[in-house]
């Protein structure tokens, strides 16, 4: 390095040398950073993946007290048609008794309290809790039970006992009609 710096400094002084070379180096660096972006962005979900990001569910086939599992974005979503007793059980619980404090009303859509839609992914380490199928262990609170590390969820999908820190996540969904649910 020393040679060239000395040579040019004696000729033109430091500032002029800097400007041109700094411009070149700076622009090169900016170009390199910009060129990196496509190589990173290609790892984000592609257009076809994003196009599959919503799924429609026909609710007419799900009777009261029954639940189904829908695959959405590669993960299970539980759709439960709750009985009045289950709704009542969820609404009776005082907020103090909850780890992740949410009322039942916050977790369902107004006017559609009989439909509970939650991600079927335990908030502890991502296992799929039991309780959707007939005969499954529903845990101590009548909702879901995660067999991996023993988390118990209630009939609003809220964590009540066990290591999971949060309630089962509620995905964004809308009622297209009274009997058609769109998740995503």
């Amino acid at each position: 390095m020393s040679t060239i710096n000395e040579t040019i400094e004696t000729e033109d002084g430091a500032t002029r040398r800097d400007l041109l070379h700094v411009a070149a180096a700076g622009m090169g660096a900016v170009g390199a950073v910009m060129a990196v972006w496509p190589f990173i962005d290609q790892m984000n979900p592609a257009a076809d993946t994003l196009a599959l990001a919503s799924v429609e569910v026909d609710l007419s086939a799900i009777g009261e007290g029954e639940a189904v599992v829908i695959k959405w974005r590669g993960k299970p979503v539980f759709v439960r048609h709750r009985t009045p007793a289950e709704i009542e059980a969820a609404r009776e619980v005082p907020l103090d008794a909850l780890v992740d404090k949410q009322t039942d009303a916050e977790r369902v859509h107004e006017g559609h309290a009989d439909w509970l839609v939650v991600m079927g992914v335990c908030t502890h380490l991502g296992c799929v809790p039991l309780g959707t199928k007939d005969g499954d262990d529903r845990g101590d609170f009548g909702g879901w039970f995660c067999p991996c590390h023993g988390s118990h969820y209630d009939t609003a999908g809220r964590i009540r006992k066990g290591p999971a820190p949060k309630n089962l996540e509620v995905p964004t969904y809308t009622f297209v009609t009274d009997t058609t649910l769109q998740i995503g």
């Binding site: 290609q42 257009a47 076809d48």
Partner: peptide, 28 residues
């Protein structure tokens, strides 16, 4: 190679997917 599938039934499709759906896939 992150998007390509080396199978006779899928290779051509996976290249077209790169060209159409993968972000900047056409460029790369």
């Amino acid at each position: 190679a992150m998007h390509y599938t080396p199978h006779t039934a899928l290779a051509f499709d996976s290249v077209e997917r790169i060209m159409r759906d993968v972000n900047y896939g056409w460029l790369i």
